[in-house]
């Protein structure tokens, strides 16, 4: 078994797929999931701005630690965290390499570190909030904040359809593989093999487009039959849908508590 094969095992498409779908769907038990979606959105809005108030690297590191704990509590996907960490590190490294030719790399990295840290804090907090919220809760939260129902419907629609589409696409790719011959020799680093898979995954979209077209027509017609457009302007239906959204003491405690943590970090460090 070559090294490449081992790497592929660890990052196999199936493993990543399961991990991502788990991020999207299995967040019922996490701490942030129990909070009101509107409060979480407000919290996220606050944390979009807080990092920009500080310039000390220690304070920023403290904030990063705090949001990371929240992210761990809301069980974000390790794959996503890995992707993010790699992109942060490689951004810094690439700037350093290029500045080595045009100027002083150490000064450049030093100037970029607080900036990168702030961006990382924001991405980690959005990862924590949006992976723990779940599209259904998010859709209701946005709806109660006044977003049009057509849009929030699309979020929940995507939530239902993504696994189905994923499965269907995977089946199509597999059937294409069954019906076609792989390249005779894989070539150096198996590049022919990967090119073959890539072409195949592009061609598998062709039947997929027709499937989705039929499905979207059926969806819209079924919605119309059930009075979707009629209910759009109906206040009673909105009220019914949003009835169980309420801000409880635990929500206020969460926002107040995290602000207190930020204050402590800012004062102590």
């Amino acid at each position: 078994m070559s090294v490449l094969d081992k790497l592929r095992e660890a990052t196999s498409v199936d493993a990543i797929k399961t991990d991502l779908l788990r991020t999207a769907y299995e967040n019922e038990g996490s701490f942030l999931h129990r909070l009101d979606p509107r409060v979480l959105l407000l919290w996220y809005g606050i944390f979009l701005f807080i990092p920009w108030l500080f310039y000390d690297t220690e304070v920023l590191l403290g904030l990063l630690a705090f949001v990371s704990i929240l992210a761990v509590l809301s069980r974000v996907s390790l794959f996503l965290v890995g992707v993010m960490a790699f992109s942060v590190a490689s951004t810094l490294v690439s700037y350093a390499i290029v500045t080595a030719f045009t100027g002083d790399p150490v000064a450049a990295v030093r100037a970029l570190i607080p900036f990168t840290l702030k961006l990382t804090i924001i991405s980690v907090s959005s990862l924590a909030v949006f992976s723990s919220m779940g599209p259904k809760t998010l859709a209701r939260g946005l709806r109660s904040l006044g977003l049009p129902r057509q849009f929030t419907f699309l979020i929940t629609y995507g939530y239902r359809m993504l696994p189905v589409l994923f499965e269907e696409y995977h089946d199509l790719v597999n059937s294409y593989r069954l019906r076609s011959a792989p390249p005779d020799s894989p070539g150096r680093f198996r590049w022919r093999h990967y090119l073959y898979l890539l072409k195949l995954s592009m061609r598998a979209f062709y039947p997929m487009i027709f499937n989705v077209a039929k499905r979207s027509r059926v969806t819209v017609e079924a919605m119309e039959t059930r009075g979707f457009s009629h209910s759009l302007n109906d206040a009673a239906s909105t009220e019914l849908q949003l009835a169980d959204l309420q801000v409880r003491p635990v929500d206020i405690g969460f926002v107040g508590g995290s602000l207190a943590v930020v204050a402590v970090i800012a004062v102590v460090l």
């Binding site: 498409v13 990543i16 991502l20 995507g158 359809m161 994923f166 989705v212 499905r215 979207s216 027509r217």
Partner: peptide
Amino acid sequence: MMAFILVMSLTGLQNAVTEI
């Protein structure tokens, strides 16, 4: 609405596939 759902689903699927 139909075209919207169609384009949205396929773009999203494409996005999720290329993510992997």
